[in-house]
Nucleic acid binder design. Sequence first.
RNA 1: GGCGUCGUCGCCAAGUUGGUAAGGCAACGGACUGCAAAUCCGUCAUUCUCCGGUUCAAAUCCGGACGACGCCUCCA
Length: 515
Amino acid sequence: MTNTPLLRIFDTLTRKKIDFQPLDPANVRLYVCGPTVYNLIHIGNARPLVAFDVVARHLRRRFPKVTYVRNITDVEDKIIKRAAESGEDPTALATRFAAEFHRDATSLGCLPPDVEPRVTGHMAEIIALIEDLVRREVAYVVDGGGAGSDVYYSVPAFAHYGELSGQPLDQLRDGERVGQGERERKRDPLDFALWKGAKQGEPAWPSPWGPGRPGWHIECSAMAEKYLGPTFDLHGGGVDLVFPHHENERAQSQGHNGDGTFARYWLHNGFVNFNDKKIAKSDETMRHLLKTAFIVRVLVEKHGGEALRYFLLTTQYRHPINFEVYDQGDELRFPGLEDAERQLEYGYLTRRRLDEQLSVGKDAPTQSGGPIADEASGWLDELSAALDDDFNTAGALAALQQGLSVANRLLDGKLAAPKDVKRRTLKRLQGDLAIASSELGLLEANPVEWLGAHRTRRAAAKKLDVAAIEAAIVERAAARAAKDFARSDALRDRVKAMGVELMDTPAGTTWRVAD
RNA sequence: GGCGUCGUCGCCAAGUUGGUAAGGCAACGGACUGCAAAUCCGUCAUUCUCCGGUUCAAAUCCGGACGACGCCUCCA
């Protein structure tokens, strides 16, 4: 195997699509900014989760080892605020929502990262890093007005500040809004807090500057270094994190380890828009939707986590994705998720047919060496090539579609092929589909179970009387046996009116919830 | 004001180191079926927001116009 670069990645820092050359091909290292756990996550939070899950999966396919680190921020202003509102202990609240987050991540088909560090478990590392920055005089201590002192990072001390976000310093200063009381403490309006002295009632940890807590950005610098070293390959997150979060992480880490250290490639996912607009908390309607319909838990309940995942992968991760919603009287409809469900149903139906076909007959022991139908080769390579090209999942999904389509054509006898070639091809397709599934995190479930669960969920959503449907099927079977087609059709019409389609197969009649 | 992304069929969405427009949904026609569903087949962008330019050749490069969205403030 040659070492020619396989992957092309759009890097935020250079704003170009460039070849990916890992520092150590034997261990590719990836850091992604995880959630601040103060809430159930919404669809916007789900995008980086899914996008970087595919990044990690694909890297694992291409390299022998990948170390994927995704943090959990469990000390932060929003958590403190939320906890104060409900009277809950901030730590307990964070722990609770971290667990909820894991549940959602799992339902979205995301594999756990290799390391999932939490801020509360890394106070020593954070404090050591800040101490070093103070020692190097790129940070300074200021009386915080409370029990402990504040520590600020001195932006003018870092020559490369603004590079990542492409913002000239004076422009950033123009936009800067300094909070009450901070103005007189900061030497420069761009300086940001590394450590915040504790105020009344806030969670605090002991430090050389008295009781306090870390600022928002420092934890990522400290934890990335601890698990991935001073310099690592990829750093990901949402576009909104480019400034100030990632700009600041970079400043801290390079201030500590020197120029050229820290992340070598920066990846940022685009936003999920709602009817072409950003899901902003400032808008009344959106705020309401964010608390209700856009919650991952709610969407998963209605359409399944895999449909949400599929939807999020229909657009390349960097581009904005539009989440359409329309109000149909008493319920909200999400065409993107409905479409995704249809695609998944097609995929699982195909996989089920494949499994059924290959489980019967014992002809043609499938030597893997023999020829297979031309149409069945190529699509998996196309899928991988699409992912090699800046993780183009939309292109990968198109390739997957080809694979599924070939399987169906073969099963339908639409492709001319000798019996042994056909069987070998089906076997190959089954294997290739499994590889594609594991790359995308899609169609990985047992087809029979998935289709059953899918039907059950949809039947429940439509409040269907399953017993009545099954009774109708039994009655219709008798009518058909007696060639009483008028009766048979009447029964079909009856369930059709309920929104159910009957499917006659050699193995008997089954049913599905109509679209 | 500064920085950046984008504008491809009714809808979603690939394709931009230039070489003659993937795929999906919807729609229509057909095969299969007692009738259906599922599946399969066929039709569905002489054209890529618009105007110029470079070129044998441009959705892809350059210039301009118009439009959309985002960041610069908590935010995925």
